[in-house]
Simulated scan of single mutants.
Amino acid sequence: MPLSPDGPGSAPSSDATDSVVAALRSAGCVFAEDEAELILATARTPAEAVAMVDRRVAGLPLEHVLGWAEFHGLRITLEPGVFVPRRRTEFLVEQAVALAPGASVVVDLCCGSGAVGAALAASLDELELHASDIDPAAVHCARRNVAPFAGRVHEGDLFSALPDTLRGRVDVLAANVPYVPTDEVGLLPAEARDHEPLVALDGGADGLDLVRRVAEGAPRWLAPGGCLLVETSERQAATAVEAFARAGLIARLAVSEEGWAHVVIGVKPGPSGLKP
């Protein structure tokens, strides 16, 4: 694969670009031209570009090959084995910002790379940010992404990872929990099922095991008027709304047809303590 014949730092020749596109297309990459541009722009040397193309052809997610993912205007650092943030989840961030523009305490539960927490911190002022995940690799990665916002990342299972000082103080609780039914994990694209952690994908028999656990526990952590936001699929949304309501939250569903995104929102009753 002929790359940057003039040496490191040179722009790849058209032949090099064509070679990368051909390799990616032969591997089944639908957006081969766009991916080739990203790989060649990210690689620091011709040898690194070749290695990146080889990893992509072998089936690694593009974001793992690049070492980053674009999310809500941010470049989120990604490490091998960490869940790749989906662009549809930007809708969850947008809903949270619109609902609680004065939020001062935000928690990103099941944070993965910390993309949601970082995006919320970038969009809101004077924020105390906490994130948590049960996966040590995700915790390590998230710490890099929330560090610019003085965020703290905790390792553990859902709420058990959080400091008790947050009880009753959380204005926005964003929980992008796994919601793929166990029997359907094997139907996911190979990029996800082979290279992302199962704990970030498998949501139990109907995909809503963690949604129910988060909804049940949320009222003890939310401030009065605080909100919980969880992403689900279209077919799960009604059941998820019911789970929120059973937990004592004022529940509704927000949908983005364009982004194929469904976000269940639950607000804890009581006067909001959010800043105007």
Rank of each mutant, 00 (worst) to 15 (best):
R220L: 13
A243T: 03
G225Y: 13
L253I: 02
V50G: 08
K275I: 04
H154I: 04
L62G: 12
A43N: 10
E35K: 12
S10H: 13
I250M: 11
R56W: 06
C110D: 12
T45I: 03
S104E: 15
L78Q: 08
L24E: 02
D125E: 15
G259S: 14
L158N: 02
R169Y: 02
A247Q: 15
V264R: 04
A205Y: 11
R193D: 12
P101L: 01
L222W: 07
G226A: 01
H195T: 00
A16C: 06
V20Q: 05
R25K: 10
L210I: 06
S19K: 04
A58L: 03
L40K: 06
D54W: 13
R44G: 15
S13W: 07
D164P: 07
A32R: 00
P219F: 11
L92H: 01
V30I: 12
T77K: 15
A251L: 11
E196G: 05
A22P: 09
V170D: 00
R87P: 03
D183H: 15
L188T: 00
R87N: 04
V93N: 04
M52N: 08
T239D: 12
A138Y: 05
S13C: 10
P163H: 13
E90G: 05
S4H: 03
V139D: 04
D108S: 14
P80I: 12
A200R: 06
A161V: 06
D164T: 12
A119Q: 05
L166F: 09
L158H: 07
A192I: 08
L3I: 13
R88V: 00
P269D: 02
E70W: 14
V106I: 13
P101F: 07
A41I: 01
D209W: 02
P5W: 06
